[in-house]
């Protein structure tokens, strides 16, 4: 029964994300009143459904659904949607919705297509310290993703203005100043979150030595993924120092934000690929394909 519910919700999720993206695209292209009125409502429905899916998955799998990179992607998609909805409700601007929802749709669809329900997980995943660490990391990466998206929009609009193109993007997008402020604001939000996620991870690791020595044996602070994350943190911190103390602004700063996020994705992917020992909790798992519940690959 629970598996059926989880399966149904997970099939529904990409459809809902696609419908929300369609509505935001319609809004962007036509500014139609129906799209304007319904887009936020559908986005809220999508977020609630996604949250319900995660709750159902947690209940069914008896662990937080953050075991694999795919589960992480899905959670990142949800966090992006939630953050975007908060921003939209605060600044009452919906015109950048298509790009943010587009990214969330991409992440969730990838996650749901390749995802398999794993019934037994690593015991680390059942500890509350992990949940806090993972939640902070997801929020930090969400903020970095939004910073990337707004920096992309900045560069697109700057290009449009330089080319004297006064079309749809010119009319719909907010000013360069606002886009830059949103991109930089997202980084400012990401930095303390990322630092907290790293610090909590380290503290939790030392705490495990006393409470769960057998689990602590799996962990080391010199893991390449942790080191990569520290490098990412220091890179963004340097960028912010340049922004505040050296007056870095405009196209250059936004290109830096885009480049930094590409490096983040590349470095994280490479670390996962070449050093699959840590932050991969799936070694002792059994997998259930939701579309073929009886089959264990």
């Amino acid at each position: 029964m629970m598996l059926a519910a989880v399966t149904a919700l997970r099939i529904l999720l990409p459809i809902l994300y696609a419908a929300t993206l369609g509505l935001y695209l319609w809004l962007f292209y036509s500014d139609h009143p129906t799209a304007r009125h319904r887009s936020t409502q559908l986005a809220a429905v999508t977020v609630i459904t996604h949250m319900a899916t995660m709750v159902a998955q947690t209940a069914y799998l008896q662990r937080i659904p953050l075991e694999s990179p795919l589960e992480f992607l899905s959670a990142l998609g949800l966090a992006i949607m939630v953050t975007y909805l908060v921003i939209e409700l605060r600044i009452r601007a919906k015109n950048t919705g298509f790009i943010v929802v587009g990214m969330a749709f991409f992440l969730v669809t990838i996650a749901e297509i390749f995802f398999r329900n794993r019934i037994s997980g690593n015991p680390l995943l059942q500890l509350p310290g992990f949940a806090a660490h993972a939640a902070l990391a997801i929020l930090a990466y969400t903020a970095l993703s939004l910073s990337f998206l707004y920096a992309i929009l900045y560069l697109i609009l700057a290009r449009q203005l330089a080319n004297h193109s006064f079309g749809l993007l010119f009319r719909r997008l907010p000013s360069l100043e606002v886009l830059e402020r949103m991109s930089i604001g997202a980084i400012k939000l990401a930095l303390p979150l990322l630092f907290s996620a790293l610090a909590l991870g380290h503290l939790w690791m030392y705490h495990l030595r006393d409470t769960h020595p057998e689990l602590a044996a799996q962990l080391t602070p010199w893991d390449p993924k942790i080191l990569t994350t520290w490098v990412i943190f220091l890179g963004y911190l340097t960028g912010m120092a340049g922004y505040h103390f050296l007056g870095w602004r405009g196209r250059r700063m936004n290109m830096l934000a885009v480049g930094a996020f590409i490096v983040v994705m590349g470095a994280t992917g490479a670390a996962h690929h070449f050093f699959p020992t840590f932050h991969k909790f799936t070694t002792a798992s059994a997998t259930v394909d939701p579309r073929h519940p009886g089959a264990n690959p």
């Binding site: 700057a158 360069l176 870095w248």
Partner: peptide, 9 residues
Amino acid sequence: AVASRKGRP
């Protein structure tokens, strides 16, 4: 002017 503005348009 542009050089002194450090990227500000």
